[in-house]
């Protein structure tokens, strides 16, 4: 079965939501000793999600999570940068809104196409 736009956007929104949780978790653990920031690669996670939708497996958006390992590790072994996480979180949220807008537009067109013609022409 081909991936329809509903499947696609459900995958996108699932991955975005999982990523929002991960970023919030990074911020929550900004002062936890020896914590390392975790993130998902959006492309990999989306591919895994669409693959799971195809095969009917339980979707697992976070399966491609990895340590980000870009920050400076502080004296307490923590490499979370609050600023970077907030920027990522904002970008992630806006992308989520964007996906929602596209989904809304697409479903709107679909509903219009399905609607019986009131004029009967």
């Amino acid at each position: 079965m081909q991936v329809g736009f509903l499947d696609y956007y459900s995958g996108v929104l699932n991955v975005r939501e999982a990523r929002a949780a991960l970023l919030a978790n990074n911020i929550a653990n900004a002062d936890t000793p020896n914590y390392k920031a975790v993130d998902v690669s959006f492309n990999d996670a989306l591919a895994a999600q669409l693959d799971a939708n195809q095969t009917g497996n339980a979707p697992n958006a976070a399966s491609s999570a990895a340590y980000r390992a870009t920050g400076v590790v502080g004296l307490n072994g923590n490499d979370v940068s609050l600023d970077a996480e907030r920027v990522e979180s904002a970008a992630n949220g806006e992308a989520m809104l964007g996906a929602t807008s596209f989904l809304r537009q697409s479903t709107g067109d679909l509903v219009t196409a399905l609607r019986p013609n009131p004029g009967g022409i």
Partner: peptide
């Protein structure tokens, strides 16, 4: 870690 509960 990701499948476990998140938070601090």
């Amino acid at each position: 870690a990701v499948n476990a509960d998140l938070g601090v």
